[in-house]
Design a binder for these strands. Structure first.
Length: 485
RNA sequence: GUCCCCAUCGUCUAGCCCGGCCUAGGACACCGGCCUUUCACGCCGGCGACGGGGGUUCGAAUCCCCCUGGGGACGCCA
């Protein structure tokens, strides 16, 4: 049997990290097995879904480089791949269930059901539909319809069944059918079928071999298996992935920091780092290698190695991993990704030579945790009329200012300046004034950047060139003499 | 409340299925040191866990039971 898996998100307007991880695992599983990765949009609840929300899904998958073999925008032999476009198909299958006598109309209103639930809860009973409408006579149905009631369709759950399946990550799971909350709704009163129904039809018709999804779907699985059986469909394999929790052990959400893919993208996490990190949430490679390229991930991924316990999303480790990727990334690509952040910070990037900019990126990349921090570190290279920070200004005194002046003299008399010459000039300056250590280097650093910490000065100077160095020194000296910030 | 799932350092986890090689390994974080005429990087070292109780066994992190704790699900959401 060929491996066909799907990622079936609902367009809610954002892509949760948990969903992203499900998409990743599904994709890795497909690629590892040489199977087909299908994307299907679950938008049966038309009132709540918008086109923008669908684009959010495409964007997230594109960013994470999870390409689908079949699905919307791509096509395939088992389409359409949007549930909102499959209503005719669903109707057909609803008819089959009706003919088999496995469903019935229920006229209970939402209020009635709500009350029933409340009462059961109050008595300490599990909320459950009682099957009230299961044996309505024709006359009763007519009467209720005349009242203007629109019925839902409920599936007759066989009460004596115990549904068992062997979950690929959880192992054997068995749930008694009487625990399912009674006969469940498969078609709403507005005629739209409901998730538990359509997911079965779609997965069966799309020949899905393995259903990979979050653990929160475990309780849906027996209902779905019952439907597979009702239709005589082959039941697929199931793999329920553990939840991703926040640091307080509750389901990861915005208040834990970020919970959607777009947020991580905006903050400047590299897609490779983000993907690598979430791959390690609930899965671990046999050889223990943690920094893994997509190819290495695919090569190593095995559902057997997926953990069954929930994982906490550790932002610290993601940060570390992002740093690692930034350090190793292709400079040109990195620069490309950093430019938008620079522009947002108000820098006119067109002014700078692209190759030169790449050198600046290369000189500052080690300092970054996320790309959005790039302007802070690159500013030193981009802006000559900097301010002098308070602690830096306080550090300066007349003697130290003289170091700067002497240094300036020497730079001005040099034809050009590079890293080597810089070191030589500093040495000479120190010798002549009897300054060394912090008293020598720090004044120069401050005069060149306005700050007491930052990149290696020889790199800075060689990238700045003589003219800008001179300009900066004059700028700083006049500020320091007038005690301006 | 009911059902389902889960349980190794603060966190991600290896080991668990097929008990001994585990004085429980790695990574992040943290702490200390080295490197560095700044900060970061890098290198070296340290701290730190089998939730509790019963079994089974010569021997249990590993198998069984109970407890506790955590999570999830109980919708005309998906």
């Amino acid at each position: 049997m060929s491996v066909r898996v799907r990622f079936a998100p609902s367009p809610t307007g954002f892509m949760h990290v948990g969903n992203a991880r499900t998409a990743l695992f599904t994709h890795l599983f497909a690629r590892h097995q040489g199977g087909t990765f299908v994307l299907r949009i679950e938008d049966t609840d038309t009132e709540r879904h918008s086109e923008d929300a669908v684009n959010v899904i495409y964007d997230a998958l594109k960013w994470m480089e999870l390409s689908w073999d079949e699905g919307p925008l791509k096509g395939g032999n088992f389409g359409p791949y949007r549930q909102s476009e499959r209503t005719d198909i669903y109707k057909e299958y609803i008819e089959i269930l009706k003919e088999k006598g496995l469903v019935y109309e229920c006229f209970c209103s939402k209020e009635e059901l709500d009350n029933m639930r409340q009462e059961q809860l109050k008595k300490g009973l599990p909320p459950k539909y009682t099957g009230k409408c299961r044996h309505l006579t024709k006359d009763e149905k007519e009467r209720l319809k005349k009242e203007g009631r629109k019925p839902v369709l409920r599936f007759k759950v066989p009460q004596d069944r115990i549904v068992i399946w062997k979950d690929l990550v959880k192992g054997a799971i068995s749930i008694g059918a009487e625990q399912l909350g009674g006969d469940f709704v498969i078609v709403r009163s507005n005629g739209m079928p409901v998730y538990n129904f359509v997911v079965v039809i779609d997965d069966a018709l799309m020949r899905i071999s393995h259903v990979i999804r979050g653990e929160d779907h475990i309780s849906n699985t027996p209902k779905q298996i019952l439907l597979y059986e009702a239709f005589g469909f082959n039941v697929p394999e199931f793999a329920h992935l553990p939840m991703i929790l926040g640091e307080d052990r509750s389901k990861l959400s915005k208040r834990h920091g970020s919970a959607s893919v777009a947020e991580f993208k905006d903050k400047g996490y590299l897609p490779e780092a983000f993907t690598n990190f979430i791959a390690l949430l609930g899965w671990y490679p046999k050889d223990g290698k943690e920094i893994l390229s997509r190819e290495e991930l695919i090569e190593r991924f095995d559902m057997k190695d997926v953990n069954s316990s929930p994982a906490i999303f550790n932002f610290e480790k993601l940060n570390w991993m992002n740093k690692e990727y930034i350090k190793a990334y292709d400079v040109s690509k990195l620069t490309e990704m950093i430019i938008p952040y620079l522009e947002k910070a108000g820098f006119d990037i067109g002014k700078f030579d692209r190759k030169w900019l790449e050198k600046v990126v290369d000189a500052t990349r080690d300092y970054l945790t996320v790309l959005s921090e790039a302007p802070v570190y690159m500013e030193t290279f981009l802006k000559d009329d900097f301010e002098i920070e308070k602690d830096a200004a306080e550090f300066m005194n007349e003697e130290r200012l003289n170091v700067v002046k002497k240094f300036l003299e020497k730079v001005e008399s040099a034809p050009e300046i590079d890293g080597e010459l810089f070191k030589k000039i500093v040495k000479e300056t120190g010798k002549e004034l009897g300054a060394k250590g912090k008293n020598l280097f720090m004044p120069i650093r401050i005069a060149l950047t306005g700050k007491m910490k930052g990149v290696e000065l020889d790199i800075l100077v060689s990238l700045l060139g003589k003219d800008r160095v001179v300009k900066r020194l004059h700028h700083a000296i006049s500020k320091l003499e007038r005690r301006e910030p």
